[in-house]
Write a protein that binds this DNA or RNA. Structure first.
Length: 134
DNA sequence: TGCCCGATTGTCT
DNA sequence: GACAATCGGGCAT
């Protein structure tokens, strides 16, 4: 645990937003009890509402390019370090509800974009969904 | 105090 | 498919 990643060791259900590559932010959800360093990186989302606002934040010609990466979706959502440690159940930044996706529709593959533990099957997405990151 | 590199992205070839 | 952009954290001196 360091000062930078301390929120990942904090209360679950909170946002963990960190700055990387000198120009991008990554949005994670803390997923383990306090004291355990665990979080899930949101690598991509399917834009449904507020697409006009997202496009203003991140002008792109193809909507498929709007939120199809961890850095991209933070730009489109306007997320930065100010949102670090926000409560994802009761703040301005929420993760709500869920589509009724059955486990059989969810694919698990090896992780991408990293060197450490790249062989772990910890990358999850809805099979056939065109909004998945690459 | 110095130095390397990062759950990336966009651009150019 | 290779590479530059860009900067603060984290580890080595």
């Amino acid at each position: 645990m360091t000062a930078r990643n301390s929120t990942m060791f904090g209360e679950p259900g909170h946002a963990y937003v960190y700055f990387t590559y000198g120009m991008y932010h990554c949005f994670n959800a803390v997923t383990a009890p306090q004291g355990v360093g665990e979080a899930v990186l949101i690598r991509a989302v399917e834009p449904i509402e507020g697409i006009d606002l997202m496009t203003r934040n991140r002008p792109v010609e193809n909507p498929r390019n709007l939120t199809s990466g961890p850095g991209k979706l933070c730009i489109a959502f306007g997320l930065d370090k100010r949102h670090n440690a926000l409560d994802l159940t009761s703040s301005e930044l929420l993760i709500v509800g869920a589509e009724n996706v059955s486990p059989s529709e969810i694919a698990a593959t090896t992780r991408i974009g990293i060197r450490t533990a790249a062989d772990k099957p910890w990358r999850f997405y809805i099979k056939g969904n065109p909004w998945v990151s690459k």
